[in-house]
Amino acid sequence: MNRQRNSDQNYETLYSGSLPESFPVVKIPKKTSEASIKNARIPHILRSQSIIAAMSDRTNEQWLSDLKNPGPQREAALADLHALVLQAMPYALSRYLSPDNPQFNALAEETAQETLLRVLDRLGTFEGRSQFTTWVYKIAVHIALSELRRRRWRDVSLDELLEDADGQPTEPGWMSTPDPGPEARAEQRDALERVRRIIAEELTDKQRNAVIAIGIKGMPMEEVAKRMRTNRNALYKLMFDARLRLKQRLENEGLEVEDLMNLFEA
């Protein structure tokens, strides 16, 4: 259960150390091929302006044209992208994993390689609404953070997580002042009971479990989705439907969310 995290917390415990002032730049071998990139071990990390400048000089069109067809241009572009992703990783993971952590280099390398494969696979979906490199970084970030989440939660089952559910109901007190007075207290109690009843009636077991696992226990949506044998998008939709139903029901019963919040904050 130590692996659980509150939704307000992050993986910061995994991170210790400070970031370099600028990107650490990876030295790229002159002759590269897709196979060599895949199998490459990054020999040293150096700082330099020239490589960054050269890699960033390409326009979106040049990136696309270089990557489209197999050949030396594609190899060079892939090598540059590989280096860019590796440079970006200390910043992307700054809240989660220190570059000094023994896991860092392997994760960065794994991310870079997976990113290149995904970029080639999805090249046709790039619409040019951002810099090509930003699009690539977005893919890399998704791959790296998904992997970190997977590692962090791999041994936690949903049943284990939901065992103690969300605690027993108590007197309304989580948002109230120490003594709101007997009238206000009765009003709060009544409102809370109504909301509890509505939640119990409107939420399906699946929706309730998802809200507790994600919203209260802090398990990532992707991990909950896997355990529920669905995907992140479908799970978001499941929770969206739950929120809409609840909102509608509260409105039908003459309860405004804002008013309820104010009641407890008063």
Binding site: A165, D166, G167, P169, A200, G215, I216, L244, M261
Partner: peptide, 24 residues
């Protein structure tokens, strides 16, 4: 199936907070 008495404060709070930013 959980009844109203089993809906804890954390769940109520989470739902209310998320309903604040829920739209069609």
């Amino acid at each position: 199936r959980p009844g109203p008495q089993e809906v804890g404060d954390a769940l109520v709070r989470k739902m209310l907070l998320s309903l604040k930013v829920t739209s069609l």
